[in-house]
Amino acid sequence: MNKWLLSALCVALLAGCKTSPTGRNQIALFSSNQMAEMGQASFQEMKASMPIEHEPYVNRYVNCVTNNIIKQLPANFANQAWEVVIFKDESANAFALPGGKIGVHTGLLTVAKDQSQLAAVLGHEVAHVIAEHANERMSQNALLQTGMQVGGAALQMGNVQYRGEIMQALGLGAQFGVILPFSRSHESEADLVGLEYMAKAGFDPKGAIALWQNMQAQSGERQPEFMSTHPAPENRIAKLTAYLPKVTPSFEAAKQQGKAPQCK
């Protein structure tokens, strides 16, 4: 049994190797169609279960920022149909799903105080889709489950003492050593890729710094970063600040090209 699982694991790793927009190696085992179907199904469930904001001026504003960001995406994403829905929810949140779906919570509009700050969030969320982070997380979990099965089978065959304790330790090791760091790397990658998109669209990339300063001011006590799926706000601010010189030329070029969004 363990030989079959090891063989399957090797084949999956070889077949799913890809490179993210920042050049990071990643595993993505699911097809684009599979991911799109799951994203669209999830979005339909959300629309059926959550109240939707229909106020025209709010929708115009959010769609204005979103459309300017979408124009900067790779052609296959820029040319697809995107659906943007604003949900009545007080949490400062937004998300993008495979299949061209974007959700924005009304609570975000009180934290993202201007178009550039909102563009930082939407650029970040769309970057998750472009970089196939959902695919990578699902693939990672599938491979980890297979690896745990292999480890369990090996321990059972070897009649190892304290098998239960060892398997629990392996589970915690996977959680803090792989799953959470991967999630933080996804967030950091989406921050930087999203910063590129917003700068190319003509939104001031400094808005991303202001956004996370706002987020930091609203956040209460947080658990240690090594136990969190997201980087601490101060670390995000530091990385974004360090990355600003790399995207400033894109922002200046956008202005010279007449890209000056007026989303209000």
Rank of each mutant, 00 (worst) to 15 (best):
Gly152Tyr: 11
Ala131Asp: 15
Pro233Lys: 08
Ala217Cys: 12
Met138Arg: 06
His230Leu: 04
Trp212Gln: 13
Gln216Leu: 10
Ile179Glu: 08
Ser139Thr: 12
Ile166Tyr: 11
Ile237Gln: 06
Leu155Phe: 13
Ser185Asp: 15
Val111Gly: 11
Leu195Trp: 12
Leu180Glu: 03
Thr248His: 02
Asn141Gln: 14
Gln145Thr: 08
Gln115His: 01
Ser188Thr: 06
Gly202Thr: 03
Gly173Asn: 10
Val111Leu: 14
Thr241Trp: 13
Gln218Glu: 14
Arg222Cys: 04
Thr146Gly: 08
Asn159Ile: 03
Ser185His: 09
Pro181Asn: 05
Phe182Ile: 07
Trp212Glu: 13
Phe226Glu: 04
His186Lys: 04
Met167Gly: 01
Ser188Glu: 09
Lys246Ala: 14
Ala127Pro: 00
Ser219Met: 15
Gln115Arg: 01
Glu196Asn: 15
Gly207Glu: 01
Asn159Gln: 14
Leu195Ser: 15
Leu211Lys: 00
Met215His: 09
Leu143Trp: 02
Phe226Leu: 08
Lys239Pro: 00
Leu244Cys: 00
Pro181Asp: 13
Ala201Lys: 04
Phe176Asn: 01
Arg184Leu: 10
Leu170Arg: 01
His124Trp: 03
Val178Trp: 03
Glu221Tyr: 11
Glu187His: 01
Glu165Lys: 05
Ser250Ile: 10
Ser228Tyr: 09
Ala190Gln: 08
Met148Phe: 07
Gly220His: 11
Gly164Pro: 05
Phe176Thr: 07
Gln216His: 13
Lys206Cys: 07
Gly173Pro: 01
Leu122Val: 02
Lys200Gly: 04
Met148Tyr: 05
Gln161Phe: 04
Ala153Met: 03
Gln223Asn: 15
Ala208Gln: 14
Met148Asn: 11
Arg163Leu: 03
Lys200Asp: 13
Met167Val: 03
Gln168Tyr: 11
Gln168Glu: 14
Thr146Asp: 09
Gln175Lys: 07
Pro231Met: 04
Thr241Met: 03
Glu132Leu: 12
Ala169Val: 05
Gln168Ala: 14
Ile209Pro: 03
Ile209Glu: 11
Leu211Met: 06
Leu118Ile: 00
Asn141Ile: 08
Val129Gln: 08
Gly164Ile: 02
Glu125Ala: 00
Glu196Trp: 12
Val111Ile: 15
Leu240Glu: 10
Leu211Cys: 05
Leu144Cys: 09
Gly164Trp: 07
Gly158Asn: 10
Val247Arg: 14
Ala242Lys: 04
Pro233Asp: 13
Ala153Gln: 05
Val111Tyr: 10
Ile166Cys: 03
Tyr162Phe: 07
Leu244Ser: 05
Gly151Ser: 06
Trp212Val: 10
Ala127Val: 02
Val193Thr: 13
Asn141Thr: 12
Leu122Ile: 00
Thr248Asp: 12
Asp204His: 02
Tyr243Arg: 09
Leu143Tyr: 10
Met157Phe: 04
Ile209His: 05
Gln213Arg: 13
Val193Glu: 14
Ala201Leu: 10
Ala153Phe: 07
His186Gln: 15
Glu196Met: 12
Glu225Gln: 06
Gly164Val: 08
Ser183Glu: 08
Glu225Ser: 04
Val150Trp: 07
Ala208Val: 12
Met157Ile: 01
Leu155Val: 09
Leu143Arg: 04
Leu118Tyr: 00
Ser185Leu: 08
